[in-house]
Design a protein around this nucleic acid. Sequence first.
DNA 1: CGAGACTTTGACCGTAGTCAATTTATGTGG
DNA 2: CCACATAAATTGACTACGGTCAAAGTCTCG
Lengths: 219, 219
Amino acid sequence: VRAFWRSVERYPAGANLFNDRSAGMKQAIILSGWACEMRILPDGRRQIFSFCLPGDPIEIHPMSNLGARGLVALTRLELVDAQSVAVANLEAREAVMGAIAEARQRKEDRLFDHMVRIGRLTARERVLHLLIELYDRLDAVGLVRNDGFRLPLTQEVVADALGLSIVHINRTLQQLRQDGSIGLKGGSVTLNNIGRLATLACYQPARQIVDERLRDLVA
Amino acid sequence: VRAFWRSVERYPAGANLFNDRSAGMKQAIILSGWACEMRILPDGRRQIFSFCLPGDPIEIHPMSNLGARGLVALTRLELVDAQSVAVANLEAREAVMGAIAEARQRKEDRLFDHMVRIGRLTARERVLHLLIELYDRLDAVGLVRNDGFRLPLTQEVVADALGLSIVHINRTLQQLRQDGSIGLKGGSVTLNNIGRLATLACYQPARQIVDERLRDLVA
DNA sequence: CGAGACTTTGACCGTAGTCAATTTATGTGG
DNA sequence: CCACATAAATTGACTACGGTCAAAGTCTCG
């Protein structure tokens, strides 16, 4: 348990995360804070691929192998090395590793959700779809309090994730606020009638998508 | 070798690919033809996530586990089971499996390229960026003849991949043709001065992206 | 209190979408 | 090989969603 706390790493907001110790890839889990994976184009345009939330496993690549995406802290960040977690829970080691593997799978699924968002949804739908995804994920780790959660993202970050301009994100949020779909003040969001919003935004939990495809194939 | 040819499967254009034999996932390699991974929204909108070309490894999931993406044949398709390939090349088994693993890695990288395309590029850039990617991939398997290749995609499919309307794809292609950037007739494309086009479209081979990030971090 | 980051608003523009009609392949049966 | 049916590509007219530019208003935090 001592080893666990000794293996906690902290990064300030804005930090580029990469493994400077070795040439290998390091597995870690977020204890608190948000990060994102992104790429910056030569001309400055930016695309955010995914958000990494507390409880998410992340892979920290060595600089020499950065690949096509960077991992950046969006807030102050606390990580633990995945190894240490396994060691600290020797009896439940298998379960821990299994949970990490499953989280990794769900993360891949979310990449496809994100492509649908930026490829085929309207601005309104994109914003709602993203907020609902974040709601679900934060809910799973107990960070939702009566339909609301803390959203430590600037509108610029949301814009770069959703492939929209910052001004348009602002207007879309205003509109959602005005028609009562969401509440938004002081960095906290509330989703009012999340079921209805999910329908509006074509948001479907993974299982639902599967069911539907099966139905289509039968028909 | 007999076993190899006996394990070739054929599908007609438009076929939904899934494993109906077992509950497991089947690994295969495309011998000829194109496929794509995609999702259809409840209201009929469609997003194509990736194209699968000759030489690409693909995973055919069981129906009960379709997940959030469907695999669909875009042309007549010939597959071989990955197992059979390994068996037919017993001496080079390791090399074959390694190549498949690497191809899988590159496929994941391409997902991020695709997100940049639909999230942050203009219509013109999206089309060029996609064409160049296809060029590179087809070139790697010897399917490029003097700067041109066969493109068995309807404009509707391109539109659904790039998150644009079919009409706008058509206009963009016209424009690229008129200014001499590309040649396009009878299902074959030519890229004129691919280096210049790559710059215009913010297209960067993976390694180049890495180099640049390193430079940024140093700066 | 002041500096800088973030949000908000207005005016205007332009890229891309929609609708609808026409032209051009593609392919099939006779 | 031709006639017809269907899918795909193309074009025009118009719309609208979202982008850009610029300024003003808020919020944080040292």
